[in-house]
Design a protein around this nucleic acid. Structure first.
Length: 580
DNA sequence: GCCGTTTTCGGCCCGACTGTTTTCAGTCG
């Protein structure tokens, strides 16, 4: 059953947090050990719930003690040490610990000296000006905590923004800062550059010899509502929608090291720094340098630093320490798809769909401008009540598309449809009509809350339909807004491999479906993929770049992505599917 | 608590900013 791994990880994360509070030190080695164990476990699937102690200890970062705790959880449903810590740190205290600025030391002193055990207690202490009276505390600290309570829920330590919200903000800020004459280079980094689904805060690195004007322009941006901290090299602000942005300004010669450092992930960086240490060097946000003489080896570009560490350059979406450093050392990183290497878009809507906003001739012209060699028009099937298209409308569209084919002879235009997968796996129209279409995407648009067995069955049934080429947005999720359907993902992916049905990598930032985790598993099973935009407007054809990032996060090699194939090879695959 | 081709003990990434301090502790990433 899905979720056992998540349950184990949630317990270990809680253990790490409470241990941090207990030991009063965020750098506690025990806390880091728990975090490392979580990281090691995350690379595995639910099989960890069936592992023996010896098998668990073999996992990177998991030792004897943590393995015992995992077995204890699986066998008894509890971890004694965690139960003891929960008694010591009740939920109201844990809530306090989530306030920005409330570290373990501050929390412990407030509890002991002022009996603060909850947010309500803290409010009282602040109202009574009790905190500023403590030794080592002052009015500023008291005001900061008061402010943190006000913002509770808006900017807490755990709040994460969907990438669809964070990325446009980051791009606008990068564009604004790039216009400053002092800014030589500007790059967003962090989890956004690694293309995670949700973003804790936005990290931006600027190369400039003169930081002051950059900082001044940054805090003056209209999107900024509050300045949390501002020094000569680092400024942190909050935007009006509660997203924190950290700006770092570094000397131009340090830009590569800084971008690398702030892109992370933390685990990836630690592995790189270890590699540097092994060679008698140090790696920080300024340079790769000799440890003793501090003489700089390289610092200006990421590529040069990876090369100096005997590593191939690693694409940011892969930098999660899930084996990419080892593969880069061996020179066996997968050759990922590139934006330039994509030869067609196979999931695109026109105004014929109720929700489409660009006419077919504009879409075709825009695809031609991008140099595509093939394009599939895939408006919604008739079962989608509001946006669907009748047989007569589809037939008329076919004529229109044929006329357009003559205007763009170098580009093959496929007349297709985005079919709805019904709750029982049924599809729009009838089989003969479907087979009359050149190309069929099948996707879920309704009935998101069926049980996993039914969902799995409905997807697999659609995969067996002779007309279907690809399953669109596999889970139907919208990141941060709607969870996807629950599936027995291994069964679905095995069926995809068996039937030769492609799995879509949907480039819409709100979807990015299938998820990176699913893509990686799918690849291991031999599944084929397509990177599509699901565009409803010509401007959305530009989303393809995000699908490329998502493919990288899923370690999907280019040769497995159908729309990297030449027209001849791709079209013969399209036809072969119909002949099966 | 974890780990090992210098090690089974003694290390474990490290710098920026703030607030309260006269040199540093706490927090954060």
């Amino acid at each position: 059953m899905a979720g056992e791994k998540d349950d184990i990880i949630a317990h270990l994360e809680e253990l790490a947090h409470l241990t941090m509070l207990d030991e009063g030190n965020p750098q506690s080695f025990r806390v880091r050990a728990y975090e490392n164990a979580v990281h090691g476990l995350a690379a595995h699937g639910d099989e960890i719930a069936r592992m023996s102690k010896a098998q668990l200890v073999a996992i990177d970062g998991v030792g004897k003690s943590t393995a015992d705790k995992i077995r204890e959880l699986l066998d008894t449903g509890k971890i004694a040490k965690l139960e003891a810590l929960r008694a010591k740190f009740p939920p109201s205290v844990v809530e306090l610990s989530r306030l920005p600025g409330m570290g373990p030391k501050t929390l412990a002193r407030l509890r002991v000296e002022l009996d603060v055990e909850s947010i309500a207690d803290l409010r009282r202490a602040i109202a009574g000006k009790e905190i500023r009276a403590l030794k080592g505390f002052g009015a500023k600290t008291e005001e900061k905590l008061a402010h943190a309570i006000e913002r509770l829920g808006l900017t807490g330590k755990d709040r994460r923004a969907p990438i669809a919200d964070a990325l446009p903000i980051a791009r606008r800020i990068v564009a604004a800062l790039s216009e400053l004459p002092q800014a030589e280079r500007v790059q967003y980094c962090g989890s956004l550059r690694r293309f995670r689904e949700t973003i804790g805060d936005i990290d931006i690195v600027v190369a400039a010899t003169e930081p002051a004007p950059i900082m001044a322009a940054f805090v003056a941006l209209p999107v900024v509502t509050e300045v949390l901290a501002s020094g000569p090299t680092k400024t942190s602000v909050i935007t009006h929608d509660g997203i924190q942005i950290d700006l770092r300004v570094v000397a131009p010669e340090s830009f590569g090291a800084a971008v690398m450092y702030f892109t992370g992930s933390k685990a990836h960086n630690i592995k790189l720094r270890q590699r540097a240490i092994d060679r008698g060097w140090t790696l920080n946000e300024y340079a790769l340098a000799h440890a003793d003489s501090e003489e700089v080896i390289v610092s200006d570009t990421e590529e040069a630093i990876y090369a100096a560490l005997d590593l191939a350059w690693i694409p940011p979406p892969m930098r999660e320490d899930t084996g990419e450093v080892e593969r880069a050392a061996e020179g066996t990183l997968p050759a990922l798809p590139t934006l330039d290497g994509l030869r067609g878009d196979l999931h695109v809507h026109t105004t014929l769909s109720g929700d489409g906003r660009s006419p077919i001739e504009d879409i075709v012209a825009a695809a031609h401008e991008r140099g595509y060699r093939y394009l599939a028009i895939t408006d919604h099937g008739e079962d989608l009540a509001i946006n669907g298209v009748s047989r007569a409308q589809l037939s008329a569209q076919k004529q229109e598309l044929q006329a357009l084919s003559e205007r763009y002879p170098a580009m093959t235009l496929l007349h297709g449809c985005e079919l709805n997968i019904g709750p029982d796996g049924g599809l729009d129209y009838d089989l003969d009509f479907r087979l009359g279409l050149d190309w069929c995407v099948a996707a879920v648009h309704s009935h998101f809350d069926l049980d996993p067995a039914t969902q799995t069955k409905r997807i697999i049934k659609a995969m067996h339909d002779p007309a279907v080429h690809v399953i669109g947005h596999l889970s139907g999720r919208q990141i941060g807004r709607r969870p996807g359907i629950e599936l027995d993902i291994d069964a679905v992916l095995e069926a995809a491999a068996e039937t030769g049905t492609a799995i879509e990598i949907n480039s819409a930032l709100a979807r990015l479906d299938a998820s990176a985790e699913v893509l990686r598993r799918a690849h291991d099973l031999g599944v084929l993929f397509l990177i599509d935009t699901d565009a409803h407007h010509v401007s959305e054809l530009d989303r393809m770049q995000w699908g490329v990032q998502q493919a990288a996060r899923g370690w999907v090699p280019a040769e497995r992505v159908l729309n990297t194939w030449t027209k001849k090879k791709f079209l013969s695959w399209v036809r072969a599917r119909r002949a099966r």
